[in-house]
Design a binder for these strands. Structure first.
Ligand SMILES: [Zn+2]
Ligand SMILES: [Zn+2]
Ligand SMILES: [Zn+2]
Ligand SMILES: [Zn+2]
Lengths: 141, 141
DNA sequence: ATAAACCCTAAAGCTTACTTCAGGGTCAAG
DNA sequence: CTTGACCCTGAAGTAAGCTTTAGGGTTTAT
């Protein structure tokens, strides 16, 4: 039942003390009670809250979106479907990023394939391809 | 042979005028000649250069890295292998990002699967899973 | 000659998620 | 009673890649 100091909370959730204060400023963590000397005092609930933020971050939500998720939990007319919709939106965004990265990887891989790594830079097919337009959109000749 | 204005160059490469000036400040484009009234004057070579930057960006290089690639082209003792190595490094980085995003997608997808989207937010499996530790690292029970 | 469309500079602002700095109090140990 | 570990605040800095703002010249067409 003894309250946790900000350092103890930070450690328990695996973040830095500055991050905790930052999240508080951003409204992701409620303003905690203070000791007589002004030190922040946290409970186990605070640890759960902070871990929630970390997990939501891990699955791709921004801090702003995490704030919305947290707000949803206390809005009485919010529905499970709201949460689901946010998850779906996020998954769609992740898919877009995956697609873009795959395209990049393929394009760069194709350039790299043609470069033997021998000789001076002046004939490198990678640079040549970047200079001219060649190599984009798999041309047919 | 008529020189291009900054607006014409920007249009030819599909970027904004401000972007051209920004790239010049960053050293990605050489400082161009100026007309009597101080207007920048570009050549076709400038268009190629600017397109190089765009294509390198498209395959994932940062502006800093693109500057290095451009510098390689004029360093006499730079080798084709240098370019190849940069490409390989970039591909590895793209792979890391792909892996991270795939992990995110899978984790979030697993949460979303359990949410029917019905009822109030208070019993949403997505939020529940984010609050507790459950759902991480596919537990076996 | 005047208005639209373009051009110039330097500097500040934007986004996200923090970190660092500057300047000080507080608490436990020895 | 002093040292070191911790805590406090507010403000500024960081990364990348631009965009915007503020204040003004130039060119071109009518
Ligand atoms: Zn090469
Ligand atoms: Zn739900
Ligand atoms: Zn100090
Ligand atoms: Zn103006």
């Amino acid at each position: 039942m003894k309250p946790l100091s900000i350092g103890q909370l930070a450690k328990a959730a695996g973040v830095s003390v500055e991050t905790v204060r930052f999240y508080e400023r951003k409204g992701l963590l409620p303003k905690p009670r203070r000791s007589a000397s002004g030190y922040r005092q946290y409970s186990e609930e605070s640890v759960r809250r902070l871990r929630f933020v970390q997990r939501a971050k891990d699955v791709g939500f921004t801090l702003g979106e995490i704030g919305e998720l947290l707000a949803l939990r206390t809005e009485p007319n919010a529905s499970c479907a709201d949460v689901r919709a946010r998850a779906a939106t996020k998954i769609a965004l992740i898919d877009e990023k995956l697609t873009a990265l795959s395209r990049m990887k393929r394009a760069l891989g194709q350039l790299a394939e043609r470069c033997t790594g021998e000789g001076p830079v002046s004939g490198c097919p990678i640079l040549d391809a970047l200079e001219t337009d060649e190599g984009k959109h798999d041309a047919n000749s």
